[in-house]
Computed example of a mutant assay.
Amino acid sequence: MDSDPVMLRIEAVSQSYDGEHWQFRDLDFDLRAGEITAILGPNGRGKSTLLRVLAGLLKPTSGRVELNQGTGFVPQEFVGSFPYSVLDVVLMGRARHIAVFQTPRKRDVEKAMAALSATGMADYASRNIEALSGGERQLVLIARALAGENAVLLLDEPASALDLKNQDVVLSLLSELADREKLAIVFTTHQPNHAVAVADKVLLMLPQTRTVFGATEEVMTEAYLEALYGIPILSARLGSGEREETAFVPLFRQRDRKGERR
């Protein structure tokens, strides 16, 4: 995969809002076509800020972001002021292809419908976005990013509010898009098991601006994850037959029958 073209490169990138407290410092890594990168870190560590820097929505305090292709950004949820249809929401992803004061053309609608088909949401095109479930809306937001014909896809906790089945739907879709469309995909998550399921590389945003970046199998270890989250984490090989995968289990404090923590 290292032979695939670099779609986005960051060099010595740092971010601070006040010049004293840093979300991250001196980050260096490449995003390649067909590669999925997962970003893990505790709340407030700067995961969403880093996505905004990668998307070009926020200028880093220092360092350089080099983007070779268009970038699609998928937020955690869609917030609209009007009861938009699903198709209208996806057409918003065509904004950079539509001139000012110009209405969407036939080609724009075709691209939007193709993106909905890719996410399995074509039959929902005329539905009100507010009438959809959380999982369905997440697929629509991914379709919106795809409609923009972007080579890089950035997703902020795309499966955080979804049930297990819809988590699988979204993660499987990301894997398919990386393999079939050769997109460079980055997503943030609090779930280590999401990273080991689909990511080729992982960025761990450890306390005190420390970071670790590398291949998933090298970075996703019990020691690193315990340092990341501040609680014991165990790994296990689970599965049956030909399918066996690594899973991570956090050791939460439990209550005994007297209601005391142990």
Rank of each mutant, 00 (worst) to 15 (best):
R127Q: 09
R127P: 11
N128I: 09
E130V: 09
A131R: 11
G134D: 07
E136K: 04
R137F: 01
V140I: 14
A143W: 00
A143N: 04
A143T: 15
R144I: 11
R144V: 08
L146A: 05
L146T: 07
A147H: 00
A147W: 00
G148W: 03
E149I: 03
N150C: 15
N150R: 14
L154P: 00
L154N: 01
L155S: 11
D156R: 05
D156L: 11
D156E: 13
P158H: 08
P158M: 07
P158L: 13
A159W: 00
A161C: 04
L162M: 06
L162S: 04
L164W: 06
N166G: 06
N166H: 15
D168N: 10
D168R: 11
V169C: 10
L174S: 05
L174M: 12
L177M: 11
L177S: 05
E181N: 10
E181S: 14
L183W: 03
L183D: 08
I185R: 00
V186C: 13
V186D: 14
T188I: 15
T189F: 02
N193D: 13
N193E: 07
N193G: 05
N193C: 11
V196R: 06
A197N: 04
V198S: 08
A199Y: 01
A199W: 00
A199I: 10
D200V: 07
D200R: 04
V202I: 14
L203I: 10
L206K: 12
P207W: 09
T209M: 11
T209F: 05
T211S: 12
F213R: 07
A215T: 09
E218Y: 07
M220N: 12
T221Q: 09
E222G: 14
Y224L: 13
A227S: 15
Y229H: 14
G230W: 07
G230A: 09
L234W: 02
A236Q: 09
